[in-house]
Amino acid sequence: GRYIKENPSIDRNDLGFEYLEAKAASSLAPFLDRNVDSKQLIDFSPYQTESITSPLLPIQCNMFVCGGMVIGLCISHRIVNATVLHKFSDEWAKASRIGIHRVDNIELSFSLAMLLPTREMVPESMYVLPLKPGLKTASKTFVFYRLAISSLWTNADNKGLKRLPSGLQFVTTVIWKALKHGKLRPSLIAHMLNLRGRTLLPISDDCCGNPIKPIFIRFFQEMSKNIQLQDLVSLVGDATTKTINECGKIDKGDDLFLMVNYSCREAGEEFERGGLDAYFFTRDAILSEF
Rank of each mutant, 00 (worst) to 15 (best):
R2C: 12
I4P: 05
E6K: 06
E6T: 12
P8K: 03
S9M: 11
N13R: 02
Y19S: 14
D33G: 14
L41V: 01
I42P: 00
F44Q: 07
S51W: 07
L57V: 04
C66A: 05
G67S: 02
H86N: 13
F88I: 15
D90Q: 04
R97F: 01
I98M: 08
V103K: 07
D104M: 13
E124W: 07
V128E: 08
K132A: 14
L135H: 09
T137K: 11
A138C: 05
W153T: 06
L164K: 15
S166V: 13
Q169W: 00
W176Q: 00
H181E: 03
L184V: 07
S187N: 04
M192D: 13
R196K: 05
R198E: 14
L200V: 11
L201T: 10
G209T: 10
G209S: 10
P211F: 01
I212Q: 02
I215Y: 13
F216C: 09
R218N: 08
Q221M: 08
K225M: 03
N226E: 12
Q228G: 01
Q230P: 03
D231E: 15
D231F: 06
V233Q: 00
V236N: 15
D238E: 12
D238I: 09
K242F: 06
E246Q: 14
G248W: 09
I250E: 05
D254M: 09
N261I: 03
S263I: 10
S263V: 09
C264G: 06
A267H: 07
E270L: 10
E272V: 05
G275C: 02
A278E: 00
Y279P: 00
A285R: 00
